[in-house]
Computed example of a mutant assay.
Amino acid sequence: MTATTGTDDGQDGRDDRAELARLLPPATGFALSPGRHEHHRERLMHQIDHDTAAASAASAAASASAKDRAPARPRLLRPSLLAPVTALALAGVLVAGYSAQGGPELPVRADSGASASERAGNAQPVALVLGRISDAAAKSGEGPVGDDQFVYVRSQVQGGDLTSGKLVMGPLAEREIWYAQKPGPQKRLGYIREGGETLPINAEFGDTDGTREGISRPTYRWLAALPTDPRRLLDHLTDLTPESEGQEHAQAVFEQIGYLIHETVLPPETAAALYRAAALIPGVTEAPDAVDALGRHGVGIAHEDRGSSTRSEWVFDPESLTLLGSRTFLTADTELGPKGALFDAQAVLKRSVVDEGGVRPQD
């Protein structure tokens, strides 16, 4: 390192530090994308609200003077595929969590046990696969959904928790969601049932006047108004999807489409356009023999984000090409966990339209 000549204004110290910074190797670490940070922050807030509500209920039962007190309004997470995703597999943590509940034992490798060359050899052009999925979606009989109705989705989900600084998987659990379809700003977006209790889904954080229909509250009416030309639709969704530091924008858009196809009822024309739009995202590939949270094998559509070292996969039934579920896992050893560790997984069990929130559809 070349010494600098001292000056009265301290320039020599700044030059020395700059020279040292240039010579030192870059710091290593795993930068979690803001979307992932938000996902786990929402999970933490959900747990805090759940515990607070439970404590308030116990206090009210023990004290007669508490009878007139209004219950606290719990704040729930907005599901993401996931949420994004999403949102919520084949990593070892899923095997342990699901097998303990009597489910089928799954292979522990994130690639379904096949080598990369074997998977690549079995893959078809992704546009061809998504074209077939699009054609099947165009013939679906779901919808329409009225403004006073609710979209109901029942799933088995498993999500990771990062509050300890490490990726810790929770158990596989059932989740039921009722999404309100009313147009305009809404302070009550629907209901969610987890762990045997049903709680309201409140407006998005910061929406004091209520959350309008849109990318974060995709009602059937809003979805039906989207462009059906795949390129126009992709451009529109790309504009609506916020940029996240540490995450490729293409991954964010892929995850946003994943959220739309998982926990909504899509107009057939919109569903068909979404899959063809996904085929236009750079880096989208087929993942042969993908597996959902329940171990159901199917046709996979995947996108890998090298910035956050994660890979997201959608899983479709090999015969009907309807969506089975999804999973997201680490593609490299990071400070959060080892390569192959599961972030979240989901298996969609039922999708329906009901007239009342919190009430299950009749089978």
Rank of each mutant, 00 (worst) to 15 (best):
M1G: 12
A3N: 11
T5A: 13
D8S: 14
D9E: 07
R17L: 13
P25R: 09
G29Y: 09
L32E: 09
G35N: 03
R36P: 00
M45E: 08
Q47N: 08
H50K: 10
A55F: 05
S59W: 10
S59T: 14
A60Y: 00
A60E: 07
A62S: 15
S65F: 12
A66C: 04
R69M: 12
L76W: 05
R78D: 07
R78W: 08
P79V: 03
V85K: 07
T86M: 13
A89Y: 07
Y98L: 13
Y98W: 12
S99W: 11
P104Y: 04
A110D: 08
A110W: 13
S112I: 07
G113P: 08
S115A: 10
E118Y: 06
G121A: 15
Q124N: 10
L128V: 14
I133F: 01
S134L: 09
A137P: 01
A137M: 10
S140A: 14
E142Q: 11
D148V: 01
V151D: 00
Y152V: 01
R154K: 15
Q156P: 03
D161W: 02
L162H: 08
T163V: 10
G165W: 05
G165Y: 03
K166D: 06
M169L: 15
Y179R: 13
A180S: 13
K182Y: 05
P183R: 00
G184F: 03
K187Q: 11
L189K: 01
I192D: 02
I201P: 01
E204T: 15
E204F: 13
F205C: 09
D209Q: 15
D209L: 09
G210V: 02
G214M: 07
A225T: 08
A225K: 12
T228V: 10
R232H: 05
R232E: 11
L234G: 00
L240Y: 03
S244W: 10
G246L: 01
G246V: 01
F254L: 05
I257M: 10
H262I: 08
T264S: 10
P268V: 06
T270V: 03
A272N: 00
R276M: 04
A277S: 09
I281R: 06
P282E: 06
V284I: 10
P288G: 07
D289W: 10
A290I: 04
A290V: 07
V291C: 11
D292F: 08
G298W: 02
G300S: 04
G300H: 03
G307M: 13
G307D: 12
S308A: 10
S309Y: 09
T310L: 15
W314A: 12
D317K: 02
S320L: 07
T322L: 06
G325R: 03
T328W: 02
F329T: 04
T331P: 00
A332D: 15
D333G: 06
G337W: 00
G340A: 03
A341S: 13
A341I: 00
L342A: 14
L342G: 06
F343K: 01
L349F: 08
R351N: 02
G357N: 04
P361F: 08
Q362N: 12
D363I: 05
